[in-house]
Amino acid sequence: MEYFNTVFQEVYKILFLLVPVLISVAMIVWLDRRVWAFVQKRQGPNVVGPFGLLQSLADALKYIFKEIIIPSTSNKVIFILAPIVTMTLALISWAVIPFSATLVLADINVGILYLFAVSSLGVYGIIMGGWASNSKYPFLGAIRSAAQMVSYEVSIGVIIINVLLCVGSLNLNDIVEAQQNLWFIIPLFPMFVIFFISALAETNRPPFDLPEAEAELVAGYQTEYSGMMYAMFWLGEYANILLMCAMGAILFLGGWMSPIEIYPFTLVPGAIWLILKILLLFILFALVKAIVPRYRYDQLMRLGWKVFLPLSLIWVVLTSSYLFYFNLLPTN
């Protein structure tokens, strides 16, 4: 009986985490479109609800009532599995995000490795979708995205090593608490820039949205998808973007810490600070989408392997030698 009690408690906690995440994904889609529109001097979605806030819900409702078409030549099991995998992987990684020192679903020792592992699994949803569709454009899109995500993961991994050298722990709460005096964005600013760009590539956002480049590949791996399955891909993608923003906020912007440790600011709960930092990063994501033209594929690969990887490796050497020379290496 006790076992069931704990299970119910955990389920309750998970729901308390996931429902806000899903709602904020819907809101973030609206925000993305609004920012994009304002940069281009348009209005954006402004009809449904106040300021168009309910636009995403209306879209979701539309997707739910649409027919799901499964191509007859597709590999049906994998075709249906692909959006489920994308969505699940996008949601399970929120389990380790700390919203304050105590407000975290699973405070595991290897939190950052868990985040990295789950984000590296994200490529499977896309490959499965692209392959199972059994048509040319989805397959090309899947191949592109697999190569792209694997390449940029390498540099993200090396950037994480940079941060870990300064922290001395893989626990996300330890990473946040190590930034009490100085956010890592200040000493590691070049790494933050590279992390931001790699996160854009990792989540297939413009200017690196080559897997779904509509001018070349119709819609990439999503071409054959319709109705709710398409919406699940879409939700998973935006949940991944939010997750990458959260990761950036935790690694470089001090997570749930308030920016100034003085009286009125310390009253605000940590979750609010984390959400504000995530929003800041997301608005940057949206601005980049509106401003920058799409990369060519060979340029994308060159940027990942020939620029970011050597640069972040050199920075690892610099960071570790600095920490070693000045005896700042964390010991615990």
Partner: peptide
């Protein structure tokens, strides 16, 4: 062996199996 498990996920599932 949480570290080993996570590294297994990252290296084998995230990179090798993709290739």
């Amino acid at each position: 062996a949480e570290f080993l498990g996570m590294i297994m996920l990252i290296v084998y599932v995230g990179a090798v199996a993709v290739l």
